Amino acid sequence: MKVILDQDKCVSSGQCVMAAPGVFDQRDDDGIAVLLDDSPAPADAEDVQHAAAVCPAVAIRIEQ
């Protein structure tokens, strides 16, 4: 699994951080999402897929 985050699309909602805190974080100054791990472990796959699904800006893409 490869995770791609488009920070230009991010609206700082924090949904990804709540769904997959080991994979996503937010910058302190503006809340834009930060990708901590672009190749998460298989155990995190469900959480990352959920994060992509709930992102209001559709800023997260997953490639297999």
Score class of each variant (00 low, 15 high):
Gly22Ile: 00
Ile32Leu: 08
Arg61Phe: 00
Ser39Trp: 08
Asp8Asn: 14
Arg61Thr: 15
Pro40His: 07
Gln26Ser: 11
Ala57Asn: 05
Gln49Arg: 15
Ile4Thr: 14
Gly22Arg: 13
Pro56Glu: 03
Val48Ile: 07
Ile32Gln: 03
Asp8His: 02
Ala41Cys: 07
Pro21Gln: 08
Leu35Arg: 04
Ala59Ile: 05
Lys2His: 12
Met1Lys: 06
Ala53Ser: 15
Gln15Ala: 15
Gln7Met: 06
Cys10Phe: 01
Ala59Lys: 03
Met1Ser: 12
Gln26Leu: 07
Asp38Trp: 07
Pro21Tyr: 04
Gln49Asn: 13
Pro42Gln: 10
Ser39Lys: 08
Met18Gly: 07
Pro40Arg: 09
Val58Pro: 00
Pro56Trp: 12
Cys16Pro: 05
Ala19Lys: 02
Gln15His: 14
Val54Leu: 06
Asp8Phe: 00
Ala53Gln: 11
Ala52Asn: 06
Met1Arg: 08
Pro40Gly: 05
Ile60Asp: 02
Ala19Glu: 08
Arg61Lys: 15
Ala33Cys: 12
Arg61Ile: 05
Asp44Asn: 12
Lys9Gln: 11
Val3Met: 09
Gly22Tyr: 09
Leu5Phe: 03
Phe24Gly: 14
Asp6Val: 07
Ala53Pro: 01
Gly14Asp: 10
Ile32Cys: 04
Val23Phe: 06
Ser13Glu: 08
Lys9Tyr: 00
Val17Gly: 10
Ala59Val: 03
Met1Val: 13
Ile62Pro: 02
Asp30Gly: 02
Ala45Asp: 10
Gln7Arg: 13
Ala53Trp: 11
Arg27Ile: 06
Leu5Tyr: 01
Gln7Thr: 15
Ser39Glu: 15
Ala57Gln: 08
Ala51Asp: 04
Arg61Gly: 03
Asp38Ser: 14
Val34Tyr: 00
Val17His: 01
Gln26Ala: 09
Ala53Cys: 01
Cys16Gly: 11
His50Asp: 12
Pro21Cys: 08
Asp28Glu: 15
Gln26Phe: 00
Val3Ser: 09
Ile4Asp: 12
Leu5His: 01
Met18Pro: 04
Asp6Ser: 13
Ala19Thr: 04
Ala33Ser: 14
Ala33Lys: 00
His50Ala: 09
Asp44Arg: 14
Asp29Cys: 01
Ser13Arg: 08
Asp44Pro: 00
Ile60Tyr: 07
Ser12Val: 08
Ile32Pro: 00
Ser39Leu: 09
Glu46Trp: 03
Gln64Thr: 11
Pro40Leu: 10
Val23Asn: 06
Ser13Ala: 15
Ala51Met: 07
Ala43Gln: 12
Asp29Ser: 10
Val11Lys: 11
Ala59His: 01
Asp37Asn: 15
Gly14Val: 11
Val23Leu: 11
Ala41Ile: 03
Val54Cys: 07
Ser12Asn: 10
Ser12Pro: 02
Ala53Gly: 04
Pro21Thr: 07
Asp37His: 06
Val11Leu: 11
Asp28Met: 08
Val17Gln: 08
Met18His: 05
Pro42Arg: 02
Gln49Gly: 06
Ile32Tyr: 02
Val54Ser: 04
Val58Thr: 14
His50Asn: 11
Ala51Phe: 05
Val58His: 13
Asp47Pro: 00
